[in-house]
Simulated assay, not measured.
Amino acid sequence: MLNRSLAVAITGYQKYISPYKGFCCAHRVKHGGISCSEHVKQALLHHGIWLAIPDIKQRFHECKLAASALNAGNNAHGRARGRERNRSRRQEKNSILDNCDCCIDLIPSESCSPLEAVGGGVDACSCTPW
Rank of each mutant, 00 (worst) to 15 (best):
R28E: 14
N71R: 15
Y16W: 12
L70C: 03
H39D: 10
C25M: 06
G73L: 04
L44K: 07
G48D: 04
S111K: 09
I104V: 13
A43W: 00
N71D: 13
F23Q: 02
G73I: 04
D101T: 11
P54A: 08
N71A: 14
A76N: 07
L106E: 10
V29N: 03
K15L: 12
R81S: 12
S95N: 13
A76E: 10
G33F: 00
G33L: 03
G120F: 00
K41S: 06
A72Y: 01
V40W: 03
S126A: 12
I10D: 09
A26T: 06
C125G: 02
C24D: 15
F60E: 14
A43K: 03
T11R: 14
C103E: 12
F60H: 12
C24E: 15
S113D: 05
K64Y: 13
L6D: 05
L65G: 07
F60A: 08
C100F: 09
G120T: 05
R4E: 14
Q42W: 06
C25F: 03
L44E: 06
Q91G: 08
C63K: 01
A76Y: 08
R79H: 13
W50L: 13
C24V: 11
I107L: 05
R79I: 14
I53L: 15
L44T: 00
N94Y: 05
R4S: 11
C112P: 07
N3I: 04
H77R: 14
V122P: 01
R87N: 11
A80N: 11
Y13M: 08
H39Y: 15
C112G: 05
C103W: 07
G32F: 05
K93D: 11
V122G: 03
V122N: 06
C36W: 04
I53E: 10
N86Y: 14
A66V: 00
L70P: 00
Q42V: 04
I10M: 09
S113R: 04
K41F: 08
R83S: 11
S95V: 09
S111C: 13
T11S: 11
G82T: 11
S95T: 12
C112A: 01
G120L: 04
A43R: 03
R59I: 03
A69Y: 06
R81G: 14
C112R: 10
E116F: 11
R4P: 08
A124E: 09
S37D: 00
Q14T: 09
E62W: 05
R28A: 15
A66C: 02
A80C: 09
F23R: 08
E62T: 05
S109L: 05
N74V: 10
L106K: 09
N99V: 07
C36S: 10
G12I: 04
V118A: 07
A117R: 02
H46I: 08
G121P: 03
H61R: 13
R83Y: 15
G33H: 04
K15T: 14
G78K: 02
C100H: 13
S18Y: 07
I34S: 12
S111L: 03
H77Q: 15
R85L: 13
L2N: 09
I107E: 02
Y16I: 01
L97P: 00
K41I: 00
G22N: 01
S88C: 10
P108Y: 04
A117V: 04
P19K: 02
F23G: 01
G12T: 03
E38N: 08
S35K: 01
L115E: 12
K41R: 15
E92R: 11
N3A: 15
R81V: 12
A43Q: 09
C24M: 14
R87M: 09
R83K: 15
I56Y: 02
Q91P: 01
R28W: 06
N3G: 02
